[in-house]
Structure formats: structure tokens, C-alpha cells
């Protein structure tokens, strides 16, 4: 049995029936870290809210831990942990009080499941008398994770847990998720950061409510069909303009301090482009072939 089964789930909003989630079907295996990767507004939060029984789907059905999200919502709420994208613990209660509160309403206690949260809670312990609203961003997120874990959920839903968190805390956070996975907890996590995708067992790339691809990060990267080059440049705008005007056999986009160039037919060769760029920009440019990352795959899929 899968931890999460989604069959044709759709959700639309408003009078114009604007699609948020468009007939999605996928499965998440037990003990997997499953990533939903997509930009803001892709439908990640709506999907989370449906799976956590906060939102009714307009069509299709879904099961979490074998339970129907509409019919068995009450039992699901006992079994899952949910960390919303926005910090939503009581800011005027202390760290310890928040944790105690969530433990109590799930009919358990901090002591009972302490081993599950110990590693995270140890970092919070010095601040346990502090009000949650006065914690730093990284600490808030750790507390939220503790509160979502305190009742030993079988499936953990994390909606953009690392948005607005510094790079060090982000790295730590993913390490923690790895350890939770070792305890057999299924984790579904969404993120707009492509670099975090590689840390998931499987990912779904979603955009405007549709799944563009769903596979392991490795397979998604391997299925990238084109030759990909990158060029370092100081004048990204000009280079992009030259490239887009030169030929339709390639497409280019900025990625950090580089410009990535993907060649989508064989009529045009990288050597030719090197000559063009040296002529127009500088004699020092030298495109080098690279292995695509998830972001490249995403951009490729968006064009398809």
C-alpha cells in the first residue's frame, strides 16, 4: 500500500473556475521523501491542503495512509503531521507551551515521543521559555517541525518549509528530514528551490496545476534530451539577446552568473555559437558542456 495515492484530483477557485490543481494522479511510497517542485502559484499548497483534509477537492479522490481524505478526514488528522507554509503556531505561547499544547491535543506527551524530536528539540531547549513569536526564522521552523512530529505521524506534510530560511538552516533542515526518513516516516515536501529537489527520493515538477514530470531526480536529469552548455558573462542581457536572435535551434536563459544554452536541434553546433559569441561579446568567452540540473529540466519541460 502506498502512503499517498492521488487519483484525478482537481481543484478550482472562483467564478472563472481558475484551475489550481488539474486532475493530478500519482503515488508516494511508504518511507519516501517526495518533493513537489514548482514556482509560486503552481498549485502546491492547494494540493497539500486537500491531502491534509483542509480543502475538499472538486473532483477525484485521494488516500493518505490508506484513508480517504474526504470520508476518513477525522482519522487522517490523527495520523498526519502538517507544517503549513506560514508559521502558524501560537506566537504568544512559549516554545514549551506550544509543544505541550500540540502533544496534549493529540493525546500524547512530549516524553512519549521525545526520541523522535530529540535532535531538533535539543537546539530549541535553551529557548524553551521564550515566546514563539520572538524566535528567529530558523528556530520557528524547527519548533513547527517539532509540533508537527510530536504525535509520531506516519506521513509528514511540509509546505515550503525552507522558504525564507537562511542557507545553513536549510541544509540542517534537510539533514533532519533524512533522519526522519530513516525512522520510516513518509515525507511530502514542497519547495520552490530547485537545488533542494536533488535531496528527495522522487520529485514531481508541477506548473499551473499540472505535473510536468514525476520521477527520481536522477532519472529526470538523465532524460534531458539536449546538449547543454554554459557561458560565464558579465553582460547577461546582451548575450541572451544575441543568442535569441541568432537561431531558433537553441534557447538560452540566465542561471546565476552563467547563461545556459540548450541546443534543441542538430543543425546548429556549439562551435558555431562560440565563434558568434567571441565575435560579438568578447574573445574570452568559452562555452563548456555541462550536465543539466533540475532547473534546466524544468525549463526544458515548460517549453515542451
Amino acid at each position: 500500500m502506498s502512503a499517498i495515492e492521488v487519483k484525478g484530483i482537481s481543484k478550482w477557485y472562483g467564478k472563472q473556475k481558475q484551475i489550481a490543481v488539474n486532475s493530478l494522479t500519482f503515488e508516494v511510497k511508504k518511507g519516501e521523501v517526495f518533493g513537489l517542485i514548482g514556482p509560486d502559484g503552481a498549485g502546491k499548497t492547494s494540493l497539500f491542503r486537500i491531502l491534509t483534509t483542509l480543502l475538499l477537492p472538486d473532483s477525484g479522490n485521494a488516500r493518505v495512509d490508506g484513508l480517504d481524505v474526504v470520508k476518513d478526514f477525522r482519522e487522517i488528522r490523527n495520523r498526519i503531521g502538517y507544517m503549513p507554509g506560514r508559521f502558524s503556531l501560537y506566537q504568544d505561547l512559549t516554545v514549551e507551551e506550544n509543544l505541550n499544547f500540540f502533544a496534549t491535543i493529540f493525546g500524547t506527551s512530549i516524553e512519549e515521543n521525545y526520541n523522535l524530536i530529540r535532535e531538533i528539540y535539543i537546539q530549541l531547549e535553551p529557548f524553551k521559555e521564550r515566546r514563539a513569536g520572538k524566535l528567529s526564522g530558523g528556530m520557528k521552523q524547527k519548533l513547527a517541525l517539532c509540533c508537527a512530529l510530536i504525535h509520531k505521524p506516519t506521513v509528514l506534510f511540509l509546505d515550503e518549509p525552507t522558504t525564507g530560511v537562511d542557507p545553513v538552516s536549510r541544509k540542517e533542515f534537510w539533514e533532519m528530514l533524512g533522519r526522519l526518513k530513516d525512522q520510516g516516516i513518509t515525507i511530502m515536501v514542497s519547495t520552490p528551490y530547485m537545488d533542494e529537489a536533488a535531496k528527495c527520493d522522487r520529485i514531481a515538477l508541477i506548473q499551473k496545476g499540472d505535473i510536468l514530470a514525476i520521477d527520481t531526480p536522477e532519472n529526470i536529469i538523465n532524460s534531458f534530451p539536449e546538449k547543454l552548455y554554459r557561458v560565464q558573462t558579465e553582460d547577461t542581457g546582451r548575450m541572451l539577446k544575441i543568442l535569441s536572435e541568432y537561431s531558433s535551434g537553441l534557447y538560452a536563459y540566465a542561471s546565476g552568473e552563467y547563461v545556459h544554452i540548450a541546443f534543441n536541434d542538430n543543425l546548429i553546433s556549439p562551435q558555431e555559437i562560440t565563434i558568434v559569441l567571441r565575435e560579438h561579446i568578447s574573445s574570452e568567452v568559452s562555452p563548456e558542456e555541462i550536465r543539466p540540473n533540475i532547473e534546466d529540466c524544468f525549463i526544458h519541460l515548460l517549453r515542451a
Binding site: 491534509t52 483542509l54 498526519i80 502538517y82 503549513p84 501560537y90 500540540f102 509540533c147
Partner: peptide
């Protein structure tokens, strides 16, 4: 408004 109700709603309360 603060969003705490979202967290409360996924509990068995």
C-alpha cells in the same frame, strides 16, 4: 488571521 486555525484544523480537535 494569524493562521493558527490552519494548524488547529489538522489536529483531532
Amino acid at each position: 488571521e494569524v493562521g493558527t486555525i490552519e494548524q488547529i484544523n489538522v489536529t483531532p480537535i
